[in-house]
Design a binder for these strands. Structure first.
Length: 684
DNA sequence: CTAGGGTTAG
């Protein structure tokens, strides 16, 4: 039988903490009560309070503290530190004031906790009070205390106070410099962070991985690719490449600076990777629009048995949203539930966003209502989902609800972009204009280029093409690609070649590499019978060496994705596809379908034009879907270009003939076809 | 026995 001395019992409490076992902790606590008489030695009480508080068992921690008559600053600090560590910042401040009420002086361990809690709660008024206390007994001169006070002033936006404190610090260490650099980046002053790093090296400071990450953040913030590369060399030379955090910082930096190849190189050469490394690699792909690769890295991480974290899950959901990958998205949603992170507000918002972007608006709504906590991003994701569907009424209702509900959120720039684009897609012209006119007064938001683009789109789409042009010439901003693009699209839709030429010329100047604009202009001329001009545009396109981007449609069947181009006959089941197309064409003709050859690209004989539009990629993908997807299951097709008018009307007919639900997500919005009708009510 | 700066996300 080993004898249980107070010291060995304290060691047992510590081992409960280090193994994060509340079960062991409670058992040891029971043993302590059995072995020793009340009151317990105060150092043992301190250990217990510390253990309970750090394990996020605040009620037990409070209880032990209140049963400790000889509690000291150490007891209280243990309690407060645990609250801070577990994100209970308001409790921490309450405990701090309770301690003051007992006339116990905070020490150099207590102040940093109190500053961190005030900083995290963004409560400068409280922070200032704590600061005054620290000044009064001279503790502010301590590096720990001074540094955390400085961090608090930065995070609460009191720049002048932060500056004074920093300049008057009697002693600075690496933590001070790291805090300075990180906060400079957060404050949008990456140059200052870089300067601080140089100064730090000059005073002979030895940087650590946190310093490196702060510097890399400054570089990615300002797109300083070269300085970041130089730091990469410095990291290698100082032997810090083995440090996982430093390497993770490099992956993130290269990803944000559009050099995802270097991210991959760093990632591949790491001998130790953690969950952050994997997640950083996923987001590096994501930031470079490589959604498929992001998903591949995620699947590889799963194979290697990496724990799925809330960060990883929200990142992968965003990849699914970009791919319109409903099936993978659903399985990641299930994984989020399994990993117990679906209550996280980031994850929840990503789920709402994913379902919205994949066109499953009811799933998005359900996820939205089931979230325990919602913020502005959640609301924007939901409104964005309605915008994708062209549900202006719902977008407007949610704009109302977000300000009047219990979530306490205020609409921002993005919210208004979503609402206006919902109006434009639904043809709610008056409503859209009214919101645009009143956004400054009602929401305090200054209209920006995206809002202007929505209005040009709104007017143009509803046929007021001249008014759209007049609008954009009157506003003070420089029209962007999106704005000219919206105008060009409207000109194509309503047959306005003269205005279309103006829009296209501006687009050619802003975005010379995009072939799509040439194609649209050529089609616009072709539809107006101006064949010479159409040919000229195509020749010019060849002349400057732009090839038409490949238009394609894809459909996922039993975990496999099948991609089709126009006139595609390369699929292994081509003969069945052709037979299905033949059968459909016959039945459609009987049902009264007339091909719309406005959308043929060349000046061909009528018969050839019909054939040209008949073999658009979405029709081929649909035929494949009809022969492979069992009846009753909705067919979902994704297309990288806008759906053409002929395909739109053809798919309406087909949905009626075959009695199935068909969804097409083009690069702009969703179309849900059912019983011969489309959810967009032919307005798009 | 108690403490400060940080890497990944919607």
């Amino acid at each position: 039988m080993i004898s249980l001395t107070p010291n060995s019992l304290a060691a047992l409490v510590e081992s409960a903490l280090s193994t994060r076992s509340s079960f062991l902790g409670r058992a040891v606590h029971a043993q302590i009560i059995k072995t020793l008489n009340n009151p317990l030695p105060s150092f043992l009480s301190n250990h217990l309070v510390n253990m309970y508080s750090k394990l996020d068992l605040p009620i037990s921690a409070q209880l032990v503290l209140s049963l400790t008559p000889s509690r000291s600053v150490v007891t209280w600090t243990a309690l407060i530190a645990g609250s801070v560590q577990n994100g209970r910042f308001a409790s921490a401040l309450l405990q701090f004031s309770n301690m003051l009420r007992e006339r116990i002086q905070p020490n150099d361990f207590t102040f940093p906790c109190a500053f961190k809690a005030s900083a995290s709660l963004r409560m400068p008024a409280i922070g200032k009070q704590v600061h005054a206390l620290a000044v009064k007994d001279g503790q502010i001169r301590d590096v720990f205390v001074g540094c955390s006070a400085f961090d608090m002033y930065c995070k609460t936006g009191l720049r002048d106070e932060a500056r004074i404190l920093f300049d008057e610090m009697p002693e600075k260490n690496i933590v001070t410099w790291n805090a300075y650099m990180s906060n400079a980046v957060l404050d949008g002053q990456p140059r200052n962070a870089v300067k601080a790093f140089i100064e730090f090296l000059r005073v002979d400071g030895k940087p650590d991985s946190i310093t490196f990450c702060a510097f890399l953040n400054a570089c990615s913030d300002a797109l300083y690719l070269e300085p970041g590369r130089q730091l990469h060399g410095f990291i290698i030379r100082s032997g810090f490449l083995a440090d996982v955090s430093a390497s993770n910082g490099l992956i993130d930096f290269y990803g944000k600076c559009r050099d995802v190849g270097s991210s991959e190189m760093v990632f591949d050469r790491m001998c130790q990777r953690n969950d952050v490394s994997w997640c950083s690699m996923v987001t590096a792909h994501l930031q470079n629009y490589e959604e498929e690769k992001a998903c591949m890295v995620f699947l590889q991480a799963r194979e290697e048995g990496v724990e799925p974290t809330d960060y990883m899950i929200s990142s992968v959901l965003s990849a699914c949203a970009g791919l319109s990958g409903l099936e993978l998205g659903r399985s990641v949603h299930a994984l989020a539930v399994k990993a117990c992170v679906e209550g996280n507000v980031f994850v929840g918002s990503a789920i709402v966003d994913m379902y919205g972007k994949c066109g499953s608006i009811h799933d998005a709504e359900q996820a939205f209502y089931e979230m325990p906590e919602r913020n502005l991003i959640t609301w924007n994701a939901m409104i964005g989902g309605y915008a994708h569907q062209g549900h202006a009424d719902m977008a407007l209702a949610f704009l109302q609800d977000m300000t009047s509900g219990s979530d306490d959120v205020v609409p921002n720039y993005v919210t208004l972009v979503c609402v206006l684009s919902a109006c434009s897609r639904a043809g709610a012209v008056e409503m859209g204009l009214e919101i645009f006119e009143s956004m400054r007064a009602r929401f305090g938001i200054e209209p920006g280029v995206e809002h202007y683009a929505c209005i040009v789109d709104l007017l143009g789409r509803s046929g007021m093409v001249e008014r759209a042009y007049e609008f954009l010439t009157k506003v003070r901003i420089r029209p962007t690609i999106a704005i000219w693009g919206a105008l060009l699209g409207a000109c194509r839709m309503y047959g306005k070649p003269e205005l279309g030429k103006i829009a296209a010329d501006n687009l050619f100047e802003l975005d010379p590499k995009d072939s799509g604009n040439h194609v649209v202009l050529s089609n616009l001329f072709a539809a107006a019978g101006m064949w010479e001009e159409a040919t000229l545009v195509r020749k010019e396109m060849k002349h400057v060496g732009i090839k038409k981007g490949v238009g394609c449609s894809w459909i996922s069947v039993k975990n496999g994705v099948h991609v089709f181009q126009a006139k595609d006959t390369s699929h292994e089941r081509n003969s069945e596809i052709q037979a299905m197309l033949y059968k459909l064409r016959k039945e459609m003709k009987e049902a009264g379908y007339v091909p719309d050859t406005d959308f043929a690209l060349y000046d061909l004989e009528e018969e050839e034009k019909i054939s040209e539009v008949w073999y658009h990629s979405e029709k081929i993908a649909l035929a494949y879907g009809l022969i492979t997807i069992p009846p009753g299951v909705p067919i979902r097709i994704t297309k990288n270009l806008r759906i053409c008018g002929d395909c739109h009307s053809a798919i309406k007919f087909i949905s009626g003939i075959v009695g199935r639900e068909i969804t097409v997500r083009d690069n702009n919005r969703f179309h849900r076809f059912r019983d011969g009708q489309c959810s967009c009510r032919d307005y798009w």
